[in-house]
């Protein structure tokens, strides 16, 4: 790929927008994962009694189990949200940027 095509894309304001929006979105989701997971790890270390509580009368389910299941589900849903947006909205924008770069070649 020629350096000219790369330079052209770099100067395309659409590219700056794609990179900024997608990057912000990815970091935002990563931050949720880090915060939720490491809060949970700290709760395990410092507040095990809280995690041992049973919120539903007559059921053995503890807050610890719920917190675990919650993380499996939520983290997976976050990957789903990212994949949908990246493969849809972001890839469309990406395609437009690439098309613009090749059109100028012609």
């Amino acid at each position: 790929m020629s350096s000219i095509a790369y330079a052209r894309i770099r100067n395309n304001p659409q590219f700056a927008r794609l990179v900024a929006t997608r990057g912000r979105f990815a970091w935002f989701l990563s931050a949720i994962v880090f915060i939720v997971f490491f809060s949970f790890v700290l709760a395990v270390a410092f507040a095990p009694d809280f995690l041992a509580q049973r919120p539903f009368a007559g059921s053995n389910i503890t807050i610890g189990i719920l917190a675990g299941l919650f993380q499996f589900i939520v983290f997976w849903v976050l990957t789903l949200i990212y994949v949908r947006r990246a493969n849809g909205e972001f890839d469309d924008l990406n395609k437009a940027i690439l098309n613009a770069a090749s059109r100028e070649d012609a």
């Binding site: 970091w27 790890v41 993380q71």
Partner: peptide, 13 residues
């Protein structure tokens, strides 16, 4: 959960 949590981060970043 500790085994699992790396995957979303690998995807995002």
């Amino acid at each position: 959960i500790a085994f699992f949590v790396g995957w979303p981060v690998i995807l995002f970043l």
